[in-house]
Amino acid sequence: MNLTLKIWRQKDAKAKGGFETYKVENISPDTSFLEMLDILNNNLIHEGKDPVVFDHDCREGICGMCSLHINGHAHGPDEDITTCQLHMRKFKDGDTITIEPWRSNAFPVIKDLAVDRGAFDKILQAGGFISINTGGVQDANAIPIPKKDADESMDAAACNGCGACVATCKNGSAMLFVAARVSSLAKLPQGRVEGARRAKSMVAKMDELGFGNCTNTGACEAECPKGISIAHIARLNREFLSAKLKD
């Protein structure tokens, strides 16, 4: 496959960025999207040019480190996968692919396609944990948990914190991320105890960091590589409102 890439280049957080166009040739359809970028970077290095900076780590769809807004979609045109799981067979020979960094005020560009998602860490530090040591792995069924609750908790826990929800949301809202964290702990007995405090402190931090307000478009759910449902946002709303009303 021969492709034209329009890639956002930005020297640092303060510099004014812009698109640059590159050609890549003889790309196998079985190449992953990030491998294709590796090939481009290899070419750029051989030409004595600055390689394109982009985030990646496990390349197995687990860690949530990869990002990229590809042809208008967070993590590219395929559904329920991260960018590292995207393969070039999803594109056609001769295509022009536009690659941009996540766009949100709370995720400033570090360089080129890499953005600072430290705001998510700050939200987690505000309450996305259980404050006491809950011990080692329990024997199965030592604490009875209804299957439905366990399933919902596990579904929410699939969130890898990649930030596609914020990148996709027209309001730059982090509600799906916060909801997934609150929901995954609220549905389990160990996490339930601190449910009210967690919801209040995480939402307060989210607001403080300048994320937008959720308008329930469902765009985050559609683009989430883990398919996290916005039903978790309704649970976060319930947790938060009932906690506030009890204050």
Binding site: E100, A106, N171, N213, G218
Partner: peptide, 24 residues
């Protein structure tokens, strides 16, 4: 919300599947 989105907008934006026009 506009402030949270930031000044720099996407050059290419596609409406995700299943998102209603009215909601946006």
């Amino acid at each position: 919300n506009r402030r949270a989105r930031g000044k720099q907008r996407y050059a290419v934006e596609a409406t995700p599947k299943g998102v209603e026009w009215a909601s946006q």
